[in-house]
């Protein structure tokens, strides 16, 4: 008799456990295990070897380059992302769907193709190649190229986080601000920004993690010059392919893995602390 009134919207316990179990197993094997192995391998020869890996000058240069690249690419993409999200969420204009599709382009294009695109444009035999070498500007095999590749690949993160948020919030608050006498910039800074700040931070975190970890596009553009144009992911590949530096590769890789964990932790912390505000700002 008690079974008759079981809530039919809840799966029976065995189904629930099966689904949760499969998910955990999948995530565990494909996500968690590799990350743990990275740390295990990194420390397998002891702390000395671990810290020794970071004493190498080429590795230090690679870490600096990654940090510099992210320091340029992330702010750029933040500004572009906000601008693009603003245009799409607040205005009607011809070509809006096209712009929307364009924003998603970096996600659908293989990073290697993205890298080759820039080589085609700016390489020595590229469309602008002659002009660039005439003016002694190096893009390919130098920092500008690496930054370009990174900006391209990580562009969607901020925009995609902001677009649905800004669409849900609508334009009424901004209109109200205008009627009260606020100019465009004040309206943006005092009304729009505070409403999107957590979504923006979210997007920036993801953009940063990806910017630091980008391999494919940067690999095509960097030229792999040790100590000069190797970012961390490229340096890791280099070390990994060198039989004598196997552990060093994992040591450096563990840094990137750590970055991944920190990003996730921050993201979850944001959700936990400001989840209510995030939901409220979405217009509920």
């Amino acid at each position: 008799m008690a079974n008759r009134y079981r809530n039919s919207l809840v799966e029976p316990a065995p189904v629930r456990w099966l689904l949760i179990g499969v998910t955990l197993l999948f995530l565990g094997v494909f996500l968690l295990l590799p990350l743990i192995i990275v740390f295990v391998q990194a420390l397998s020869h002891g702390a000395d070897v671990f810290f020794g890996a970071f004493a190498d000058s080429d590795t230090k240069a690679a870490i600096r380059l990654t940090l510099l690249t992210a320091a340029i690419a992330v702010p750029l993409n933040t500004v572009f992302g906000v601008a693009a999200a603003w245009a799409i969420a607040k205005f009607e204009f011809r070509g809006k769907t096209f712009l929307s599709a364009l924003i998603d382009l970096p996600f659908s294009v293989s990073p290697v193709i993205a890298g080759m695109l820039f080589v085609l444009l700016f390489g020595a035999q590229g469309w602008f190649g002659a002009w660039l070498s005439a003016h002694d500007i190096k893009i390919v095999f130098a920092l500008p190229g690496i930054v370009l590749a990174t900006v391209f690949v990580t562009f969607p993160f901020v925009a995609r986080e902001l677009i649905p948020l800004m669409q849900a919030q609508g334009t009424e608050e901004e209109q109200a601000a205008l009627t009260l006498g606020a100019g465009g910039w004040r309206m943006f800074w005092h009304v729009t920004m505070p409403n999107i700040r957590w979504g923006l931070l979210y997007g920036v975190l993801l953009c940063n993690a990806r910017a630091m970890g980008e391999f494919g596009a940067v690999s095509v553009l960097s030229g792999h010059i040790r100590g000069l144009t190797n970012t961390m992911p490229l340096q890791i590949e280099l070390l990994y392919n060198d039989p004598g530096a196997y552990s060093a590769a994992f040591a450096v890789a563990s840094l990137l893995a750590l970055l991944g964990f920190v990003t996730l932790a921050l993201k979850n912390f944001l959700e936990w602390r400001h989840g209510d505000e995030l939901a409220a700002l979405r217009g509920k």
Partner: peptide, 26 residues
């Protein structure tokens, strides 16, 4: 012009006083 919207359009992240004084503060 003073405009009042059907769905209030109050600034969610500002308190009542800051909402009311917004026009003066900008």
């Amino acid at each position: 012009v003073g405009f009042v919207f059907q769905h209030y359009a109050l600034f969610k992240h500002m308190n009542v006083l800051d909402n009311v004084t917004f026009g003066l503060r900008v």
